[in-house]
Simulated assay, not measured.
Amino acid sequence: MADENGAVIWEKVADGVLLVTLQRPPANALGLPVIEGLNAALDDATGTKVVVVRSALDGYFAAGADIKHMSSIDAESFTEYGDALRGALDRLAATDRISIAAIEGLALGGGLELAMACTLRVAGENAQFGLPEVKLGLIPGAGGTQRLPRLVGRGRALDIMLTARQVGATEAHSIGLVDRLVETGTASEAATTLADELSALSLPAQQAVIRAVDASFERPLDEGLRYEAVEVGNLFERGEAKEGITAFLDKRRPRFA
C-alpha cells in the first residue's frame, strides 16, 4: 500500500512482518509527506510483530528534516512540524512491536533520529551517520539528544553532536549505534531475515525484554532487579511462557500468537 503522497509504501512480506519503504526523492527529507506516510503505515500495522523501515533511494536512508519547509514557516508552524515528527517517531519507538531500520547510505539529522527510534539498526558498510543540527544553529529535536546517549554513551554522543561530524558504519557498529553491520546493498535483506526470526518468537516476552532493559537505564540496580522479577512473573501468569515451556518439553516449536 502507499500513502496519498506516495512518499511511503508498505506491504506485509511475511507472517507478522511489515516492510515500510521511504521513497521521497531526492533524499527522503522527513517532511510532512513522509511523516504522514509513516503514520499511515503504522495505522496499518495491526497484527504485525515486526516493522522494517528501509529506503528505496540510492545513497540515502533519510538525509534529515525538511529544511526547505522549515525555512518557509513561522515559529508556531515550526513547533507543530517538530511535534508531528516526534509523534511519528515515538509511535515507531513504542514497545507494542519490534522495529528494525535497514540503513544504506546517509542517515543524517532526522534520518538518524528515525533509525534510533527503531528497536534495532542493521546497516550496510556504506552507511554514514550524523546529527549536524548545530551547523544550522539548532539541536537534534526529534529524540536525538535523548536516544543517542543511551546507545553510545554521553561522551561519544556529545562528540558526534557538538562536532556535527559524520560517523562511518564501522565506527557506528563499534560504538553500539549500529547493531548489525552487513555488506553494502544487503541491509534490507538482512533486516527482513532478522524480522522473520524475531516474528517467530514470543512478542510479549520480547516486549518485556525491552521494558526491563530500558528500566536498567532509569532505575538503581535493586529496583531494576525487582522490576525484572515482576515481568517474569507476569509472563508466566498471563503471557506465553506456559506455551513455550510445554513446547520445549514436547520437543516441538511453540505456537505463539
Rank of each mutant, 00 (worst) to 15 (best):
M70N: 03
T79Q: 14
D58E: 13
E76D: 15
F78G: 06
A75W: 04
H69S: 08
S72D: 11
A62L: 04
V53Q: 01
H69M: 10
L57E: 05
V52P: 12
A75K: 07
F61L: 04
R54K: 09
V53G: 10
D58T: 11
A63V: 02
A63E: 07
F61S: 05
E80L: 11
A62T: 07
A63L: 11
G59T: 04
L57G: 06
D74P: 00
S77D: 10
D58I: 09
I73N: 09
E76Q: 10
G82C: 06
Y81N: 08
F61K: 04
V53M: 11
S71L: 15
H69W: 11
D74Q: 04
A62R: 03
K68I: 05
D83F: 05
E76G: 09
R54P: 04
G82N: 13
S55R: 07
E76M: 03
F61H: 04
A56T: 01
H69Q: 12
Y81G: 00
I67Q: 12
F78K: 06
E76F: 04
V52Y: 09
E76P: 01
A63F: 09
E76L: 11
G59L: 06
A56S: 11
Y60C: 06
D66C: 07
A62V: 07
G64N: 11
S77C: 05
A75I: 08
F78M: 15
A56L: 09
A65S: 11
D58W: 03
Y81K: 08
S77P: 00
G64T: 06
D83C: 10
S55V: 10
L57F: 07
D74G: 15
T79K: 14
G59P: 05
G82E: 14
T79G: 11
T79V: 14
E80G: 01
K68Y: 06
S77K: 14
Y60M: 11
